[in-house]
């Protein structure tokens, strides 16, 4: 079976790839486009380590087919920083030591960015429920939630 040609935009740049119909978007991102920041922890949409945005909507890229990306806009962890300037979420994750092994971190950052795009002023409970689809086994989530709340406050301009 011949491969299918797909045209997309990834992190603001035009991108094309060839893929088999059954290839997941996660496999395409990692193996074809060499964007290995998105991780596979389960392949079944349970862990959130492969979180990306597709036309602005938060999805698990392991549950999306590569061919479904045709004409769509993809956002991955590799596009979160603005050049050499870290996104406030990235900075706050580092300041709060919100990662230990760091494997779930790309997915958590992408998911949190989507949260704050939708709701710039979440309560702690809202943040915890939004991120309930992103598993972290190292931190117990405490420092992640603190980093999220602190970054959100900074992005709202509440820090002096």
């Amino acid at each position: 079976m011949s491969k299918i040609h797909v045209t997309t935009t990834v992190n603001g740049e035009p991108a094309e790839f060839l893929c088999e119909v059954q290839d997941s978007l996660l496999d395409v991102l990692r193996d074809q486009l060499h964007l290995t920041g998105s991780k596979e922890g389960c392949g079944s949409g349970d862990c959130g380590a492969c979180s990306i945005t597709l036309d602005g909507r938060l999805v698990c890229s392991c549950l999306v087919l590569g061919v479904e990306a045709e004409g769509k806009t993809i956002g991955t962890i590799e596009g979160l920083a603005n050049g050499d300037e870290l996104h406030p979420l990235q900075r706050k994750f580092l300041e709060h030591a919100a990662l230990q092994c760091g494997f779930c971190t790309p997915g958590l950052l992408v998911a949190t960015k989507a949260l704050l795009d939708a709701n710039p002023n979440p309560t702690e409970t809202e943040a915890r429920y939004w991120l309930a689809g992103n598993l972290c086994r190292c931190t117990g989530y405490d420092k992640i939630i603190r980093a999220v709340m602190d970054a959100a406050a900074e992005m709202r301009g509440e820090h002096a």
Partner: peptide, 10 residues
Amino acid sequence: IDKVTGKAMF
């Protein structure tokens, strides 16, 4: 920084 930007090689 490697770990918040997706550069870290697992």
